[in-house]
Amino acid sequence: MSAILHLAIPAGDLSRTVKFYTDVLGCALGNGEEGRWVDVNFWGNELTLHQSKEQLPTVRHDVDMGAVLVPHFGIHLTQDDFDAVKHRIALAGLDYIDAPYRRFKGDKYEQETFFIADPNNNVLEIKCMVNPQLLFPEV
């Protein structure tokens, strides 16, 4: 059984959004249909960007660190990959929705996280956990 997640989202202007995922986040492209959709290797997961006119509406939900935008999706990265993505965001001159910060300081679930939007306003949470092996410990 495969453990690869597949997520399909509206991309707005496909070519513009593809540049965000490849140039800023550093993802590679896979299969696609020119001008219609393309698969992105989202750190081993299949993210499919669909050419669209619509954007998903977002609202803020209260959690321990404040109000986060929902819906959102994201990825858990190693510290090196996390730092590389932050560096590429800075080089691209993009603004964070919620700048990098630490959650659960001193706790076994301590993590650094930030929120950013792609060109079609799809919200992404990128995080790096201090103890990633504890995310889903075996029962």
Rank of each mutant, 00 (worst) to 15 (best):
R102Y: 15
A8D: 13
L124N: 07
H72D: 05
G44Q: 06
A92T: 06
G12C: 09
H87K: 12
M1I: 13
S2I: 07
L7D: 00
E34H: 14
Q111A: 13
A28V: 03
Y101A: 01
D98R: 15
Y109P: 06
L14I: 05
H6C: 06
V123H: 01
A99W: 04
D23G: 07
V59A: 00
E112T: 03
V123M: 00
M129V: 10
W37G: 06
Y109W: 13
D98I: 15
A67C: 01
C27L: 03
R103A: 13
D118F: 01
F82E: 05
G44C: 06
H87P: 01
F115H: 08
Y96M: 13
L47Q: 08
V85P: 00
D64E: 12
L56E: 11
H50D: 09
E34I: 10
K105F: 00
L124C: 09
R60T: 15
V68P: 03
I126C: 11
G26R: 03
E110G: 04
I116T: 05
A11T: 13
E125P: 01
P132A: 13
I89K: 07
D107Q: 12
D13R: 14
G66F: 00
L7C: 06
C128I: 02
K108S: 04
I89M: 02
R36I: 10
H61Q: 14
G32I: 02
K127S: 14
S52L: 07
L69P: 13
G35Q: 05
R88K: 12
L49W: 13
W37K: 10
G93K: 13
Y109N: 15
P137T: 09
L29E: 12
V40D: 04
P119A: 10
E33D: 09
M1P: 14
G44W: 02
R103L: 13
H72F: 01
V130F: 12
F104V: 10
L7W: 09
A67G: 08
T58R: 03
A28N: 06
L124I: 04
Q133N: 15
V123E: 00
V38H: 06
D80G: 03
D81F: 03
P100H: 01
L124S: 09
V130C: 08
H6R: 07
A84T: 04
Q111I: 10
H50G: 06
T113C: 07
E112Q: 10
V85M: 04
K86C: 05
T58F: 02
W43K: 04
Y109T: 15
K127V: 08
T48W: 02
F42A: 01
I97P: 00
R103D: 08
L47A: 11
I126W: 05
